[in-house]
C-alpha cells in the first residue's frame, strides 16, 4: 500500500511543537513566553490540519493562537513581564519530574496495545463513527459531519460547552470586576509593562484595523452561516467576531468600544446565546419530542424532517456564536482593565 508521507511531516511538526512548548516554559520573560505559546498553538493547527481535523484546527487557530494569547498578554499588561528566578526549589522540581516520568512511562506501557497510527479499522474508527459518516446526509442534509455531530447527535455536549463559556465569562466578571469609582486606580508600572500607546502615533494601526474590522465580521458571519458546508460554525465565528471587537479595543481604547458595547449589553448578550440554544431544545419538548430532538420542529421550520434538523442546527449555532462572541469580549475587557472597565491594553 502506497502510503502518503504525511505521518513523517507529522513527526517533524511534533518535534517542533515540543521544542516550542519547552521554550515557552523555559523563557524568563513572560511576554516572550506568551508569544512562543502563540506560535506553539499555531504549529498545533498545522498538525491537526494534516490529520484532517480542519474544524479543530480552525478553532485552535481562533482560540489557542488567537484569544488565549491575547488573554495572557492582557494579564501580563496588568502585572509585569518578568518571572524572577528566585528560589529554584530544585529538589521539588526533580521530584515533580520523577512523577511525570513515571506517569509518562505508565502511559507508554499501553503503547503495544494501541492500534497502529492511522488505522482505519481501529475500534475508534469502526465502532460508531461510521454511523455519522454514512447517515449525516440522510438525517440532516448537512455535508459537514463535524457540524452535524456537534450540534445534533451530540448537541447536549455543545449546549454545556456554551454554558462553560458563559460560566467563564460571569466567573471572571465576578472575580475581577470592581467598581471603578470606588477602587483606587493603580496605574500599571510603565517600566515592566509595555508603554501605553499614545493615541496620536498609532494612526496606521487605527486606520488599518478600522478597515479590517468589517471584513473580519463579514467573514465571521460567513463562517457561522456556512458552517453546514465548510469548516466553521458558531464557535469559530463567535471567536472571530469577538476578536474583531478585541482588535478595536487594542487599536483604539476600551472607552471607545464601551461606548458602543456597554458592560450591560455585553453581559446580557452573553447569557442570551445560551438561552437561544436552550430554548430551541425546549421547543422540541413542547412539540412533543425529546430535548434537542430538532426533528419534531418540522411543522414550524421549512422543509422536511431532515431540513428541520438542518435549520435548527443553524439556530443553535447562532446562539453559540452570540455567547462566544460576547464572552470573549467580556473576558478580554475584564482581564485587560483589571476589572475597572476604564483603560487597558
Amino acid at each position: 500500500m502506497a502510503e502518503l508521507p504525511i505521518w513523517q511531516y507529522d513527526t517533524l511538526f511534533l518535534i517542533l511543537v515540543l521544542l516550542f512548548g519547552i521554550t515557552a516554559l523555559a523563557m524568563q520573560n513572560l511576554m516572550a513566553a506568551a508569544i512562543v505559546f502563540g506560535a506553539y498553538s499555531f504549529l498545533m493547527c498545522l498538525i491537526w490540519t494534516t490529520m484532517g481535523a480542519v474544524d479543530v484546527a480552525f478553532t485552535e487557530a481562533a482560540v489557542g493562537a488567537g484569544v488565549s494569547t491575547v488573554f495572557i498578554f492582557a494579564t501580563i499588561y496588568n502585572t509585569g513581564v518578568c518571572a524572577k528566578p528566585k528560589n529554584p526549589r530544585l529538589a521539588f522540581k526533580l521530584f515533580a519530574g520523577l512523577i511525570c516520568f513515571v506517569t509518562g512511562a505508565f502511559l507508554l506501557s499501553a503503547l503495544s496495545d494501541f492500534p497502529n497510527w492511522g488505522d482505519p479499522y481501529s475500534p475508534v474508527n469502526s465502532t460508531i463513527s461510521p454511523y455519522y459518516i454514512e447517515n449525516t446526509i440522510r438525517d440532516t442534509h448537512v455535508p459537514n459531519i463535524v457540524t452535524t455531530v456537534l450540534a445534533d447527535y451530540r448537541g447536549f455536549d455543545t449546549l454545556l460547552e456554551t454554558a462553560v463559556v458563559f460560566i467563564a465569562c460571569i466567573a471572571i466578571y465576578s472575580i475581577l470586576r470592581v467598581d471603578a469609582a470606588k477602587s483606587k486606580v493603580v496605574e500599571p508600572d510603565i517600566v515592566t509593562s509595555p508603554p501605553a500607546y499614545d493615541p496620536t502615533d498609532s494612526l496606521i494601526i487605527r486606520q488599518a484595523s478600522r478597515i479590517m474590522v468589517p471584513f473580519m465580521q463579514i467573514f465571521a458571519l460567513y463562517v457561522i452561516a456556512h458552517g453546514h458546508y465548510s469548516p466553521g460554525g458558531g464557535f469559530q465565528g463567535g471567536v472571530i467576531l469577538g476578536a474583531s471587537i478585541i482588535l478595536l479595543c487594542i487599536s483604539f481604547d476600551l472607552k471607545y468600544v464601551l461606548r458602543q458595547w456597554t458592560e450591560k449589553k455585553i453581559m446580557i448578550l452573553t447569557s442570551l446565546g445560551v438561552l437561544i440554544f436552550a430554548t430551541v431544545g425546549l421547543a422540541c419538548v413542547i412539540m412533543g419530542g425529546e430535548y434537542l430532538n430538532y426533528e419534531v420542529l418540522d411543522p414550524i421550520l421549512p422543509g422536511d424532517k431532515a431540513y428541520a434538523r438542518s435549520h435548527a442546527i443553524l439556530l443553535v449555532e447562532i446562539g453559540v456564536g452570540i455567547t462566544v462572541m460576547f464572552s470573549m469580549i467580556g473576558i478580554y475587557i475584564n482581564l485587560a482593565s483589571n476589572g475597572r472597565f476604564d483603560r487597558g491594553l
Binding site: M51, G52, A53, D55, V56, T59, E60, V63, G64, V67, S68, F71, V124, N125, I128, S129, Y132, I133, I145, V146, T148, V149, L150, R154, D157, T158, E161, V164, V165, I167, A168, F235, V324
Partner: peptide, 18 residues
C-alpha cells in the same frame, strides 16, 4: 477522517480556554 474525536476535542479546546 473520524469526526467523533474531532467534536470531542472541539469541546475540550473551548473548555480549555475557559
Amino acid at each position: 477522517t473520524n469526526p467523533l474525536t474531532q467534536i470531542l476535542m472541539l469541546t475540550a479546546i473551548v473548555v480549555g480556554v475557559a
